[in-house]
Amino acid sequence: MDIDLLSNILYAMVRTGTPLLLVALGELVCEKSGVLNLGQEGMLLMGAVVGFVAALLSGSLMLGFLLAILAGVAMSLLFGLIALGFSANQVATGLALTIFGTGLSAFIGSEFVGKPIDGLDPIALPLLSEIPLIGKMLFAQDPVVYLSFALFIAVYWFFRSSRPGLVVKAVGENPHAANAIGLPVMRTRYLAVMFGGAMAGLAGGYLSIAYTPLWVENMSAGRGWIALALVVFASWKVERVLLGAWLFGLASILHLVFQGLGFSISSNLLAILPYAATILVLVLLSRNQIRARLLAPISLGKPFHASS
């Protein structure tokens, strides 16, 4: 295996991991505030279809991404209204959001199947992209990938050293205590849910405008679910989300690369790697009950009533 091939593999790993990273970062913030939104796949598809249609009709990729993000936010507000406003069961609401988003995106997109657009092109940064091995991986990507690096740093900093980050964590750990000391529980949760929606919408736009610039029904092919697993895999730690997203990205392209090189490893076996890894982490996490409880936000999935 020569260095060019390795550098190509790393490049593809980051590209493949980017939609997972975006969705998982959004879901992480959402879950940190105590809200479990299983509607990622639906929001992803809505972002993809709206972004694609907007980019196609207006000819502006920028507008496409903007509307993709707005579509994600709109979907997440729908979730927020039902799960937070009416205190409905979050799991059921999230599942419904996925089914709704899958159907609605197919409905909106049916006229636009098979229409090509010129997708977002990679921009290789001069000099930096010439660095052997990691140059192409980090500095020859498209702008959304660069944005995902920035968003990762922002979320990392947010939880590590900002006050609003502390508020989100407090609300997720113990909403009643947070409420008692005057923190705005509901507003925090709404904002966290909307951030999750924006990230899923952006990831959807990335799929339909940059990654494979086309719209076809159900094009996310389960990436929303993988991102959900990824948050658990990362045991709610930001830096592990990045690591996990790229690892999942690597696992999903590695079996393609190996087959091309003629290694006789079962492609099915390699394809299940990300899922097997998630199960393994889940098992390891739940081995120790107390540690498991400390890792996940304690109020995750539980509705909050200010009166109680």
């Binding site: 593809a12 990654y211 094009m219 092919a221 990436r223 999903s252």
Partner: peptide, 11 residues
């Protein structure tokens, strides 16, 4: 799976 098909083509 458009994403995977593109990945395979690129690989």
């Amino acid at each position: 799976d458009p994403g995977k098909e593109a990945d395979a083509a690129n690989a």
